[in-house]
Design a protein around this nucleic acid. Structure first.
Lengths: 214, 214, 214, 214
DNA sequence: TATGAATGAGTTTTCATTCAT
DNA sequence: TATGAATGAAAACTCATTCAT
């Protein structure tokens, strides 16, 4: 890799970003120092400024990345499924992110980003809000499809269900942080699917949650 | 009020605590300065140290207060209700806290406290964890009662439902912060009660969520 | 004791002075706070200012008292003794102060006062200098008497012996502080008397210090 | 000198140390500010922290240096001398330090260090104690040799003489500080040698200091 | 480009002193 | 007179950012 090439610069930038993320999770945005990050990458503090104009900018970019990665899973739609299955399948993919080894770190970064959004409404808050709103609406759309196909009660407030499912995801992350990871996210997810299946228009026929149980 | 009386001191202490809370919500724990807090109370920075030994202590106390206030509502049990109604009624009281004028501030403080818990596991993390665990178990107990009385499927994982409901509350707060308050918390709550009522063993007989509407 | 009487005030003043001395020895002049002293006396910090205009003044007075007490023993001359015995007897009384239970505290205060004298040449340094010079000259006078009576070599530099004996006293205090009291002051004193007695004119012939002068 | 070279850093560190010593002598450890020191070196206060982690550390290092330099002279033994001459020669070298232009500053630093030792028994007190004890024992050893060769009374308490000579040195420094340098240290030294020579077993025959001429 | 020493503004904390009660 | 809460001026220390090399 030629040092002067754009690719080299991009790679270096990504490297710094990763290090920053790790350090930010470890120490928090405010407590983390540029020196910490430089040490993590193995460069000098001054060098960071070649790639990012300021610490605030670094924070902004890390937050944006966090928001973007947040629930990319939702984007991957599968064909040939009922809308209800699509909803549950999408949720499952998101929840997988709450179960893996980095779940706690992801949750911590999410918390940090949310708090940072309060302090920087323009640069961090607004993009995060857009992101979250997008997810919320995306879920609501799928719920609409499920209502159209009859697997969810058409009377039900689709937007509310979108918010509820999103909140549940965020809240599970928050609880994980508060409980230092001692949360049975899988059990919550199993229960969630059961409850969602229970929203059928006729709360009865054939919808046998017992069977659907995990 | 005599300046040297205990009552005066207590009042002053509470005043500083309130100011600190307000300033912390506004600027965050790290960014808020003792000067900010002093200015908010209308005293000199040095005076604060007569009441609190350090900024960290002030943060700890504010967080503890936040945790304690968090869901005191749950403690107030009503007599003469079915366990299911008790569960929903308790939840409703908690959710009222998500609907009032200070809901956003409460949510912000909660977020701050959760992030602070990562940095101070001993002084802030542990008490918060205890608090949250208590609530989680409290809900699980009520769920058990509901299972015993037959209003909730006895096969269901009571602990998971406790975690789920707690997560949903936390997540709604987090979403409110991310969306700057633009969340229809009431709609989420309505949907939640419907979903909980849907957990009955026979998902059918006469459970009319519409009527239960708060 | 009527609170408004002068005697009461004087007693209170002495009480504060004693407390100040104790606190100063414990924490040093700079580190000791007015609050420390007030607590030691059992009064409020503000009350001290009724008796002493400032902390600096308190330090000055404590230092003056230390200097004055330093070697009051010397003043008490005995009659019917030879000048040499007078010298040794006077020294013995001073050295008794290096052997009692409070010797270490006295030494510490002396050190503190000497250091304080560097910072306050006018108010602390000058009186201390006067005091020490007085003692030095007093010893020299006794040495002169001893020379006159023939018990000490008349060629000897009386002023130097005065300085030497004074230095030895100060130095033993300093060493005691450095060694946390682990100094056999009595043995030093025994040796000192022997050396002083060895300064007689007839140890003699051939002993020509003048010539030996480097 | 390249700023990043080790030699540059060492030199800068030494420069700061010297400035600190000067400032500490001028204002005392407590009163001297990091700003004072920075100004003395001609750098910013923050820069000092690149070389020393704290003001306390700076004080500790300055004190250690003072203790170490204290009486290095003693270490330089000469061959072909009698033990008595060795003792007196060693003392003379030490006393030369009490006679030069920096004698007063050295004495002041010594006083400061002794007082600091009271406040920091671990970091300053203990090393100083070790240092002083080493010197005391070193002198006692030489005295033993002198006793073996017959130039000092073998009955004499060698340890006491070690303490006495050390105390005299310290005390002369202390008196110099108290008298603002108005002490004839040379005269004290002359008298000291005479008194030490007077400690021979037979205080008479043939002790010819003239021959012993340094 | 990279380095890392230096800057200097900003923060917490202490404490002599004052003064209303 | 005594009290003790409050003041406010330091002072130690941190760290984002700069810039000479």
């Amino acid at each position: 890799m030629v040092p002067s090439s754009d690719a080299y610069l991009e790679e270096r930038k990504a490297e710094i970003l990763n290090a920053a993320r790790a350090v930010f999770i470890r120490h928090g945005f405010e407590r983390a120092t540029m020196q910490d990050i430089a040490t993590e990458v193995g460069i000098s503090p001054g060098a960071i400024y070649r790639y990012f104009p300021s610490k605030d900018d670094l924070i902004t970019v890390v937050c944006a990345a966090a928001g973007a990665a947040e629930m990319r899973a939702f984007e991957e739609r599968r064909e040939g499924q009922s809308a209800l299955e699509l909803l549950i399948e999408g949720g499952r993919e998101v929840w997988e992110g709450l179960l893996d080894a980095e779940a706690l770190d992801t949750a911590r970064m999410n918390l940090e980003a949310t708090v940072a959004a309060m302090r920087h409404p323009e640069t961090i808050g607004e993009p995060l809000r857009e992101e979250m709103n997008g997810i919320r609406e995306h879920i609501a759309e799928v719920v609409h499809l499920a209502q159209a196909e009859g697997s969810i009660d058409p009377e039900l407030d689709a937007a509310a269900l979108g918010s509820l499912l999103l909140s549940l995801t965020l809240g599970t992350q928050m609880l994980m942080v508060q409980m230092s990871g001692d949360v049975d996210a899988d059990a919550i997810w199993q229960l969630t699917t059961r409850m969602v299946r229970g929203l059928g228009p006729e709360e009865l026929q054939g919808l046998t949650p017992g069977k659907a149980k995990q």
